[in-house]
Amino acid sequence: MTTTHDTATHEGGHHDTPEQRDKKELSALILLIAGDGLFLVLEILTWFYLRALNPNHGWRFSTASPTNPATSGSNNPHDITAEVAKAPVSWSLLVILATLAVGGLVWFGEMRSRKGESPVPALGLALLTGLVAIGLQVYQFQTLPFQTTDGTYASCFEFFMASNLAHQFLALIVVLGVWNRGRKNLYARNWYQLRLARIWTMWVGISALLLGAVSILFV
């Protein structure tokens, strides 16, 4: 390989130092979280808007809709409110706690890395916790006492869960990446990616908390 080019004048661009990449990627992550946060805020506003309209207490009517072929009109839920009140809350709390734990464990890994210790055990645990959180979320999905077609409350609740699942999945990919890179000892000298992973996973935990809190507390 012959590179006759004077690389001294071309340090930037495609080949940055870790410090430069840290600065860029942190800025990008903050912007991404800002955009994602707006999505979250609008999701919650949607929930409150539909809740304020409150036709039939958030449950579907017995008649079929001419505009939505998915509503057949049959299978109208009986008084479902009582069932809902006891069913999903504890599951939601578990999902939220598990999602928050992922962020906490990545943070722990980052602190260990800063001290010069291996972040791998903490990251491995975070990975497992992330898988558990996704499992819990999917299980909650399957065991809900209502379906997507059961009205606006059900719509919002299931939409929140889906958006949380998407977040958890993105967090899992990040955690899988940093865990594997940690195993290859790539964070021995710089840990900025661990910090970025921590910020993202913690944001995922916070958004799960907000969505969960809204959908549980304001039934």
Partner: peptide, 30 residues
Amino acid sequence: AMPAFLLAMTMMVADKATGTSFFVADQGGS
């Protein structure tokens, strides 16, 4: 602007493909 677009379109897909009722007035939406 884009997050709002994303939200609108995902809710639209949900309404059409999974039967939620965000925008369907006679099932509680608007």
